[in-house]
Design a binder for these strands. Sequence first.
DNA 1: CGGCGGCTTGAAGGACGTCAAGATTAGTGG
DNA 2: CCACTAATCTTGACGTCCTTCAAGCCGCCG
Lengths: 252, 252
Amino acid sequence: MSSIRTIGRFAPPDPGNGDGDAVHFCSTCAFGEVCLPGGYDKPALLELHCLVEHVGPFHAGDPVFRNGDRFESIFAVRAGTVKTSLVDEEGREQVLGFHLPGEMIGLNAIHPARYPCDAIALDTVYLCRFSFPALATLATRMPGIQQQLFRLLSADIGKAALLAGDYNASERMAAFLILLADRFAARGFSPTRFRLSMSRGDIANHLRLAAETVSRVLRRFQDQSLIRVEERDIELLQPDELRQTARCILHP
Amino acid sequence: MSSIRTIGRFAPPDPGNGDGDAVHFCSTCAFGEVCLPGGYDKPALLELHCLVEHVGPFHAGDPVFRNGDRFESIFAVRAGTVKTSLVDEEGREQVLGFHLPGEMIGLNAIHPARYPCDAIALDTVYLCRFSFPALATLATRMPGIQQQLFRLLSADIGKAALLAGDYNASERMAAFLILLADRFAARGFSPTRFRLSMSRGDIANHLRLAAETVSRVLRRFQDQSLIRVEERDIELLQPDELRQTARCILHP
DNA sequence: CGGCGGCTTGAAGGACGTCAAGATTAGTGG
DNA sequence: CCACTAATCTTGACGTCCTTCAAGCCGCCG
């Protein structure tokens, strides 16, 4: 049996200087539609590009922002994975979500004017930082940017509710894998082979399960030849079957 | 023992013609800050008021919009309660939330451009209807409206996640009651005595519990003198104690 | 090498769901 | 005003899925 350890890892080209690959990253980004030339006049586009600041690298465990920090910016993930979570007064963590390249974080901070959660890098992370006041001002002049902001905000509503239903462990786990696969696919990565950048504990927490249950479900899926697991590398052998298991979570 | 059946019912003044009470309703509305004169020049305010359309009454069971309907407007509840829910392919309902006077519905429809859920009146409901294209256009000229839209959208993100954690039935129920009380208080209603406009089944569904469990928890709360229940009328006898029970849901 | 965190596996216990029956209310029409 | 039915709610008994607890394994890093 061949190992799958050497596949499925998307080794991100170092986006440190962020020049040569700017277009590549923007094309997979939630803001790509407005960042990339698409009907906008050059001066307006320049303004947008001016207020984008490339930040990083963050390393595993580094905070991007902390619960309670004053809100100033929203971020787009350029490379790596960011975990958002809350820690209650008793110190128990609650994982709200994982954010892949092209996805935004910080949108839920506009209203309280403070970040309402922690954002922690799970691996090596590069971000685009958008000053929100500047973005909002620009949005009054560029309807396309306003539209995109409305869309991004609207799309985030209820995203967390997907996993909130009273589903069993298999349905949750299947939905988690399929949602990940779809998000990878949307960004041009392989939807059938990928590497989980988060620990079993984080997955379990996010799905409101015990880490032991995650282990057991993954093993059951593997015994049913639905997936192949090797450490954090995942291969979806029968994605349609998984999708079927998760349909009650995914379809509504 | 005296009955509490005659108290706590907020009989809404008929807002049918919506003229004399306009200011009263707007002052409790999520859009009140921008609808009511507050630093805006008169012409701009007139434009906003022009695109607001008063609709209703809806009666219990009437749909405001249906899952899949083309998105055109967002709504503010003026009176009554609206339930938003999803029905999956097997016909099982999933209650997403309840919307009280002053709260908005339809914000999660901007992105898909279709309403992603059903909105059903639970009692006699009056709404303010805002054409979203018109509102977005106006927002490019009135930064205050844009800001308020951003805030409303942002505030809705993760609102559903509150009840998504792995909390037990008592914590969920306590949080539900306290959140309701706080929302009533914010609109000027009594936070300790109110009437549940939704059925036990809807509450249970929303909290991901069985209806029987809701009954049992309410009875336990009553036996502990935390609340007094008579049918759908609720009196919070020890709100602080309830808040304590729900703190892990409310506080983070 | 040894310690440590992450992961897996097994066994026991509990919280909630399901099923079933009865109670209470609301709605309807005579 | 009063039957009558349907719907909602309550209460009890039992079963189940998942958590908890415990132990062992593996890979990583000092």
